[in-house]
Design a protein around this nucleic acid. Sequence first.
DNA 1: CGGTAAACGGAGAGACTTCTCAACTTCGTG
DNA 2: CACGAAGTTGAGAAGTCTCTCCGTTTACCG
Lengths: 232, 232
Amino acid sequence: MSTAPESPDTPVRRPLRKDAERNRERILAAASEVFAEHGLAASLDDIAHRAGVGVGTVYRRFPDKEQLIDALFEDRVSEMVALATAALEIDDPWDGLVHFLTRALELQAADRGLKEVILSTVDGRSRVAGGRERIAPIVGRLLDRAKAAGVVRQDVELPDLPLLQFALGAMADYTREVAPETWRRLFTLVLDGLRATGPDATPMPVRSLDQDELEQAMLCAGTAMARRRRNA
Amino acid sequence: MSTAPESPDTPVRRPLRKDAERNRERILAAASEVFAEHGLAASLDDIAHRAGVGVGTVYRRFPDKEQLIDALFEDRVSEMVALATAALEIDDPWDGLVHFLTRALELQAADRGLKEVILSTVDGRSRVAGGRERIAPIVGRLLDRAKAAGVVRQDVELPDLPLLQFALGAMADYTREVAPETWRRLFTLVLDGLRATGPDATPMPVRSLDQDELEQAMLCAGTAMARRRRNA
DNA sequence: CGGTAAACGGAGAGACTTCTCAACTTCGTG
DNA sequence: CACGAAGTTGAGAAGTCTCTCCGTTTACCG
């Protein structure tokens, strides 16, 4: 008590021993590679092995798999936010939207883990505190601007965009090892369909998901890991 | 030898005891439900339990999970073939193609297992002997006809179609529990993009997968079960 | 009926997870 | 330079899964 504890919410408790810090970096680097390749389902044994440490070390540094994922993808998510913000600065509303979608998809196609982090939630709380919550409003403005300018179909809604990302991301996973750029073909088709094309656009057959429903959908996508936690 | 064995390739060896036959049906029915809901990753314990039999009984009837899947989806795949054939009989080439894609997607959206059976292979051999091999040429004719009539973009290739199905199927899985028809929105966009729209169509940025590459991609999609088998 | 081959069930082997813990090693400081 | 706190380790607990084995039950045929 008298040993001058840092103010209660100071992030630095004590500067981590040199070897520990080095191992932390190694673990993060290994996790980055492994998750990018195999998705979040990759095992911690694999990661520990690739980092050259024992599993125990991983668990000493990160209380559980979920928090390792959080630590890893925190800045990746910020990167996505920056991306959306930058896209808002492009003058042409169409170019802005397309630029964002393209770059976001490129990131997701290159990193299977990132895709899963962004498009699924666990226990209803999104992974990486408020990831989607931060991105959504910016993308919302991007979309509204394009619709206002009349360059995007009026009946496209904000929740359609993550779904689009999910679908194309899934396809990118599918073809990753063979020809990782193939998703761009389907993306081209979608983009042409997204564009306001006057009267020959087919009307939407069903209404869009709303925000809550989208959240629900993401929850279900939590798959195996979530189920296991539920049972315990 | 002298006990008059049926001719060597006769399918009927002996007409299965009454209770055995009844259980076989139950297992198939249970598997159908469970696979449709949870995909092929569903456990055989679940299936056995829902069928009201022990796991042992399942394994007595079907040597392994793969063969249960085969038995179950054999006629579903034939259904898909029939679908494509029927679509060829629609006079309008555009309507024919759209009809097939729509119906196929409807089936896949309603049955998670079916999607996985059609779009993935194990050990390079497609599940349900020659499933894709039977469907592909018919769909090929469907697509060629539409391209020849000038109603579909010239730069769309046959391997693009299963990829499209995969992407939309993944999205259907995602939203299944919340609003199972939502995939139709993205499908609308894609369809509008697929249509030959004259000079405002964005050119394809990368070439299509060829048949071999598609096969490769499917192989990778075999995921966990395939990996396990590889190790053993 | 009664005998027997067929069918059944579920415990358990073996492979895979995530996560824990007690014994050992190393850092860095007084 | 020695000693305590911090860090490391890998075996193992408890949970998934697939698939096997064998003691018990059941349908069928004479």
